[in-house]
Simulated scan of single mutants.
Amino acid sequence: MKVLVGADIGGTKLAIRVAAPDGAVRVDVEVPSTGWEAAPVKEAARWLLDRVGPVLPEGDEIAALGVGAQGCDTQEHCARLTAAFEALTVPAAVVNDAALLIPAAGLDSGIGVIAGTGSIAVGADAEGTVLFVGGWGWVLGDEGSAPAIVREAAKAALARQDEGREDDGLLSELLAHYGAADAPELARAVNDSPTPATWGPAAPAVFRAAAAGSASALAVVDDAAAHLIALVSRLRTRGAVGQTVVAAGSVVLGQPLLADRLRDRLAAAQLDLTLRLLDVPPVAGAVALARVRYGAEGAAA
């Protein structure tokens, strides 16, 4: 059977969905995205096909592939990766993983915002030119992502310590997460292994502190929301069209406080946009891209 394949390549996992042309889902799996790099594109294309092949039902053939890829951060890069798949005789459509949110939501236009392992916002102007903002990595930015929230929370908790102020609950939550005895030990724990894998899992501790009333933690979450809405505002300034902001990612979907703050900040920004939390897996958007590509392939035949 000829099938449509969607792939959502994120910072920690790869979601693959195989669907029949009539829409029936034949395979829905997630595997670690360990080793994924968006460049060089020839190696990237082979990396993905090496992981799609083993999950295809016996006898199935890829009619079209839709891909949302972390690290594919320009329209030109996505075009080169698309060409790499085509060179392997696989009809494909490639976008940044955040750009999957709009087709996954069943919309033709809008702004996608991901806040999870990283953060980025993606839209398109009236001519269809894809626009990216953010996504510069947790060391430089990625505000609203799990590692960045922990980065800012640790800074806030340690600054409060430096000022001689009593812990308002944020420091104690971070100490508990890292098994640290005091502020200096916390600093060593986060500095000795400065990676998203070390920082990101501590994000729930920040939200627990906020829920318990920590003003420091609440300020960190509110600031994260403000930065995410600033990404949306920049896209609108650059001509992004659509009336909906579609948000996804482990942090914004898993932490209602961040979603609430996003709504508040979006309303305050007066951008005439509504926030929608994605209620289907983003890989559904990749299958939608594959369906469009399959239609184009048939029309060209």
Rank of each mutant, 00 (worst) to 15 (best):
V3P: 06
L4E: 11
I9R: 01
G10H: 10
G23D: 11
G23S: 09
A24K: 07
V27D: 08
D28H: 15
V31Y: 10
P32E: 14
W36S: 06
W36K: 07
W36L: 05
P40Y: 01
L48M: 11
L49W: 10
V52R: 06
P54Q: 10
G59P: 03
A63N: 05
V67D: 09
G68E: 08
A69M: 04
C72I: 09
D73R: 06
T74S: 05
H77L: 08
H77E: 04
R80V: 03
T89H: 14
P91K: 10
N96P: 00
D97T: 03
I102R: 00
A105D: 01
G118S: 04
G118Y: 02
V122W: 13
G123D: 11
V133E: 12
G135N: 05
W136Y: 14
L140S: 06
G141K: 02
D142N: 01
E143R: 06
E143G: 01
P147Q: 05
K155V: 13
A159K: 11
R160G: 06
Q161A: 12
E166H: 12
D168M: 08
D168K: 06
G169D: 09
G169W: 11
A176M: 09
H177C: 09
H177D: 09
H177T: 07
Y178G: 02
D182E: 08
A183V: 01
A187K: 03
N191F: 12
D192K: 09
T195D: 10
T198N: 15
G200L: 11
G200V: 10
P201F: 10
P201V: 13
P204H: 08
A205P: 01
R208N: 12
A210V: 10
A211P: 02
G213C: 12
G213P: 11
S214A: 07
S214Q: 09
A215K: 15
A215I: 12
A215E: 15
V221R: 01
A224T: 02
A225Q: 03
I229S: 03
A230K: 08
S233Y: 00
R234C: 00
L235T: 02
L235G: 02
R236N: 00
R236V: 04
R236F: 00
Q243D: 07
T244C: 00
S250R: 03
V251I: 04
G254S: 04
L258D: 02
L262T: 06
L262S: 06
L266N: 04
A269E: 01
Q270T: 13
L271G: 07
L275D: 04
R276G: 05
L277N: 09
L278F: 07
P282I: 10
A284H: 14
A286H: 15
V287M: 12
V292A: 15
G295R: 15
A296T: 15
A296D: 15
A299G: 14
A300I: 11
A300F: 12
A301K: 15
